[in-house]
Amino acid sequence: MKRLIPLWITAIAGIVLIASYFVPYAQGLGELTSIWFDILAGFAFILGGGNLLKVHLKKVSDKAAGWGYSVILLASFLITLFVGLGKIGVHPSPDYPDNSWSGVYNEVGSPFWWLYEYAFKPLTATMFAMLAFYIASASFRAFRAKNVEAVLLLGTAFIILLGRTFAGVWLTSWLPESLSGLKIENLSVYIMQVFNTAGSRAIIIGIALGIASTSLKVILGVDRSYLGSARSEP
């Protein structure tokens, strides 16, 4: 029973969405189901936060390795949550000046905005900025012109790297207009619009077929892996 009902829920939800695509009368039902899905996605964020809280509280109470960092994590989590949910330091909306809760949660100058501007933003942006260093290191370590395939990959990468900057324009600016197709910046455009389009199209066709078959298997109850192992049933 604990597995049968979820299987039916999946099947009905999936079929409603498919039907809403083909049958205009079912569009309203598809919309409603999608809105419920959107709300549930909101709950998923809350579940994520809750899980984080649970894991790190346990880590602190067990005094597991690195529990000090968990304390910092919990403190930053709880402070952000408190100032955000409580709209601390947020002024009322000019439309409703007598309602202190009517302001927007991320008002400029509020503590929640401050945490975004001076903690969230620099930290996430720098995490991704680190990838510039790693891609340089990977370029040095991983790319070897061992065979035809690798040469093609590297050659294309060079043309794109040059062609998408002024270096490409500068390097082949001496070519006459009749040979302008060989200018690096034009070569990079051809590569993108012909070979890259062909390759990427083949990949997305393959992925589309994979997604369609997986979705169908899930909706029809053939693939039940998302329900977890049957042996864990009490």
């Binding site: 996605a41 909101g42 709950f43 964020f45 809350i46 994520g48 936060g49 984080l52 960092y69 968990s70 910092i72 994590l73 919990l74 403190a75 930053s76 989590f77 709880l78 402070i79 952000t80 949550l81 955000g84 949910l85 949660y105 929640f112 945490l115 975004y116 903690a119 969230f120 930290l123 996430t124 995490m127």
Partner: peptide, 16 residues
């Protein structure tokens, strides 16, 4: 630790 804590709470607050 700070980025994980702040971002998880940020997402919760916005979703709410």
């Amino acid at each position: 630790a700070v980025v994980v804590g702040v971002s998880a709470a940020y997402w919760m607050v916005v979703a709410f």
